[in-house]
């Protein structure tokens, strides 16, 4: 990856906070190999939010877990803040953990049911060696940040006493309290009620702006990604098929899969496009071997798509796409 790509002119000058090169992950399950992630490279700069979208099972969660060193990649490298963290262990890994935090999908399951909120928030501070005299202040500050005020009213509660939205605030607070520079959020609101989702999304945006965090958001809801991420990466069967500024990508999708994805998102207005989706079959009957992974479902598949797997190509300074069609159409 020698080309310097950027979401916009400003970012090109910055070094990425986290950079993944050629990540792969194969799971061995009962004699069968599942290539969950086939080839993913990405970069996220400080203060930038990258969205990852794609069908269920395309490898979004696995990618995120590798970035956080919760899963060891089968191949590839992860560079965080200039250091190779792919095989970190022990104290060095602990130092990385304080820098890279995760916001969980299911708030009802993300907190130890026996721990009070105070204990849940103090635990990371203890583990990361923050002196005890600072704990109270930091817990207080982080609860203010996630709007659980006054903090004293929340500290002694247990998870079962909180609503989903409140729990997700605690989960976010727990992720922010070690003072990370990278936040990964895997479907952070999909388990929440519609009326409280907006609150969590706004908190995520605010925290990123105020603390200058790098963020990776995972969702299969493009509308949500558009709300929180300026740049988006589309995955299909473990590979990146398209990447670019979110709004451009939605307004003018280059990859046929992205087109189908964008067309499939319903909008909350009666007047909307109800035309047949430009995609065939389903993920399960699309096991194409060789050539483009999407060709079994692609309405534009050509001869070359069977013969040659397309690689990610830069089509504008900010956009990349892996499709043979690019250049012949558009």
């Amino acid at each position: 990856m020698s080309d310097v790509r950027g979401g916009d002119g400003v970012r090109t000058a910055m070094t990425p906070l986290i950079k993944a090169i050629g990540l792969e992950k194969t799971f061995r399950t009962r004699g069968r190999d599942v290539a969950a992630v086939a080839d993913v490279s990405l970069e996220v700069a400080r203060g930038e939010a990258l969205g990852i979208v794609g069908e269920s099972g395309c490898g979004k969660t696995t990618t995120a877990r590798m970035l956080l060193r919760l899963e060891d990649p089968s191949a590839g490298k992860i560079i965080f803040d200039g250091t190779d963290i792919t095989t970190l262990r022990g104290a060095a890994l602990l130092k990385f953990r304080a820098q890279a935090q995760l916001v969980f999908q299911n708030p009802f399951d993300a907190l130890n049911p026996r721990f009070s909120i105070r204990r849940a928030l103090a635990e990371p501070l203890n583990n990361f060696g923050v002196p005890i005299r600072e704990h109270a202040d930091r817990i207080d500050a982080v609860l203010h940040r996630v709007r659980l005020t006054p903090p004293a009213a929340w500290l002694d509660r247990r998870p079962h006493e909180l609503s989903g939205g409140q729990l997700q605030r605690v989960v976010l607070a727990r992720a922010l309290i070690p003072g990370p520079t990278l936040i990964v959020a895997d479907e952070p609101v999909s388990m929440l009620d519609v009326s409280v989702r907006a609150g969590i999304l706004n908190l995520l945006r605010e925290a990123r702006d105020a603390l200058g965090l790098a963020a990776v958001y995972i969702s299969h809801d493009l509308a949500l990604i558009r709300y929180v991420c300026e740049r988006t990466m589309v995955m299909y069967l473990g590979q990146v098929v398209e990447e670019g500024p979110t709004k451009e990508l939605i307004a003018n999708p280059a990859h046929p899969y992205t087109r189908a994805l964008v067309a499939a998102v319903p909008v909350p207005h009666v007047a909307q496009d109800r035309a047949q989706l430009p995609i065939r079959g389903s993920l399960s009957d699309a096991a194409a071997i060789g050539g483009c992974a999407f060709r079994g479902r692609c309405p534009h598949a050509m001869k070359i798509c069977i013969e040659l797997a397309p690689t990610l190509r830069t089509i504008t300074p900010t956009r990349r796409v892996a499709c043979h069609l690019e250049g012949t159409m558009s």
């Binding site: 304080a98 993300a110 989960v171």
Partner: peptide
């Protein structure tokens, strides 16, 4: 359970 993984992320041995 996610909270066990959460313990890992938050630095528990």
């Amino acid at each position: 359970r996610a909270w066990v993984e959460a313990a890992r992320v938050t630095g528990c041995s």
